[in-house]
């Protein structure tokens, strides 16, 4: 017989109570390396500019530019460290949750029945640290997709397999 009982809001499982699993600590190293590469290029450009362009205003601005870049570097490092703690994921019986972001914290939940396909990716650097990222795609391009970076390779493949069985 078909029944349609009113839903008690309080009895619905609470997604906000779920404790998120932190991602692997070594991912922080990858973040450092990325920042290091970025800023070496930026510093490199400034220093090159100083040596190649022999005009007064360049050398006047040079130290300001260096100090500015240095402050930016420190700011980005601080933000990366703090926001690292904000990253986390969790699996429930019917969905997957992923949260990230310090200044703008976003927490996305994708129900398993809406997953279109899954992908495990490993960049060149991530391979050295035995890390991988898991991408969860839903239909359409409106932005409901997840990409969880900084999982250990074993973790990523395990979740991938688990989700694959859940989808089918």
């Amino acid at each position: 017989m078909f029944t349609n009982i009113e839903i008690d809001i309080d009895s619905i499982p609470k997604a906000e109570m779920v404790k998120l699993n932190p991602i692997s600590k070594s991912y922080l190293k990858i973040l450092y390396i990325n920042i290091f590469i970025q800023y070496s290029i930026l510093f490199g450009i400034v220093i090159l500019a100083k040596n190649l362009i022999e005009e007064d205003w360049v050398s006047n601005v040079f130290w300001y530019a260096i100090i500015f870049l240095f402050l930016l570097l420190i700011l980005q490092l601080v933000i990366s460290i703090l926001s690292f703690k904000k990253r986390g994921y969790a699996l429930r019986n019917h969905d997957i949750i992923y949260a990230k972001g310090l200044l703008m914290h976003k927490r996305t939940t994708v129900p398993f029945i809406r997953i279109q396909h899954l992908e495990t990716k490993q960049s060149f650097i991530a391979k050295k640290f035995n890390l991988a990222s898991l991408h969860v795609y839903t239909a359409g391009e409106s932005g409901g997709d997840l990409s969880i970076s900084g999982l250990t390779f074993e973790e990523a493949t395990r979740i991938n397999q688990l989700l694959t069985t859940k989808i089918n």
């Binding site: 200044l103 914290h105 976003k106 996305t108 939940t109 129900p111 809406r114 839903t138 239909a139 409901g144």
Partner: peptide
């Protein structure tokens, strides 16, 4: 398809 919360 998915639900998210965003908080600054």
């Amino acid at each position: 398809q998915a639900v998210a919360t965003k908080q600054s």
